[in-house]
């Protein structure tokens, strides 16, 4: 008999034992290891996917940021350009204004210079004319220029009429202090007397006067009361000359800066004016 039943039974037991042993030592651990590895790989893949997604998101974010940054930069650049343009315009305008102001100042300075020159010329001319006139009068007559001035003033006083005379007379009468007679030089007593007499005769009353020397009158006599003034001086004649000289300067200098000087009179007149 080829089959030994004891051996069969023993082999069945042996096989069952072997199944148990293999299950215990081979299949379970191996399958567990494979499952663990698969789980790990799946986790790693999921992790990689998540990282990839995150990286993609970050890349998108970065791109978006870059774009907005570019836009911002462009906006800032254009703003800065506009500001620079405006600033340039402003500076140019300022510079133009400053240049204009400078030019105006220069012109003013020129005008001032011209005025000063004019003034100097006038003064010089006055002095020269005075000197010439005095010399001429002295040479021509035996009387001094001062006497002639006094005479002229007296004559003018006597020739005074109309409203001017009335106003001056009223002023002389009403004032309490004596009227002041200013002259460029100290008047001699005869002339003082002549003036006193002329006043008395003109206004038909005793006029109280006081004499004063005022060199700025440039050879002339001035009677001033409270509010009224009667004057005659070579300065009036000189005004005419000054006007002529000013006209001359105006013609020779373009643009003319010098403004016309004080109202010159054709002829020296006795005028009453309010101070």
């Amino acid at each position: 008999m080829l089959i030994d039943w004891f051996t069969v039974g023993a082999q069945v037991l042996n096989f069952a034992l072997l199944v148990f042993l293999m299950r215990r030592f081979l299949y379970k651990p191996i399958l567990a290891a494979i499952a663990a590895r698969e789980k790990k790989i799946a986790a790693e893949l999921a992790d990689a996917d998540a990282q990839k997604a995150e990286a993609g998101k970050e890349r998108d974010d970065l791109r978006q940021k870059n774009e907005s940054f570019d836009q911002e930069r462009a906006a800032l650049m254009s703003e800065a350009r506009d500001e620079a343009k405006a600033e340039r315009q402003r500076l140019l305008a300022e510079a133009r204004k400053a240049a204009e102001a400078l030019s105006a100042k220069r012109q003013e300075t020129l005008a001032n210079e011209a005025t000063q020159l004019n003034g100097a010329l006038v003064r010089k001319t006055q002095a020269e004319v005075f000197a010439i006139a005095r010399k001429t009068l002295t040479d021509l007559a035996t009387v001094s220029l001062e006497e002639r001035v006094g005479e002229v003033f007296t004559r003018r006083l006597r020739e005074l009429k109309g409203e001017a005379k009335e106003r001056l007379g009223a002023s002389l009468k009403s004032q309490s202090s004596p009227a002041i007679v200013r002259s460029a030089f100290e008047l001699p007593p005869e002339q003082r007397a002549a003036i006193q007499q002329a006043l008395n005769e003109t206004f038909s009353s005793e006029v109280r006067i006081r004499f004063e020397a005022a060199p700025d009158l440039v050879s002339g006599i001035e009677l001033s009361t409270e509010g009224q003034k009667l004057a005659w001086s070579i300065a009036d004649y000189l005004s005419t000359l000054e006007k002529a000289v000013a006209q001359l300067l105006k013609d020779s200098h373009k643009p003319p800066a010098a403004k016309p000087k004080p109202e010159p009179t054709e002829e020296p007149i006795a005028e009453a004016k309010r101070p």
Partner: peptide
């Protein structure tokens, strides 16, 4: 049979003693 069982079980035990779950 016992010898085979011993070889199979012992080798399985030895190999699976330190199983790696990494790559």
């Amino acid at each position: 049979t016992w010898a085979l069982m011993l070889v199979l079980a012992v080798s399985a035990k030895l190999i699976t003693r330190r199983l790696s779950t990494s790559h």
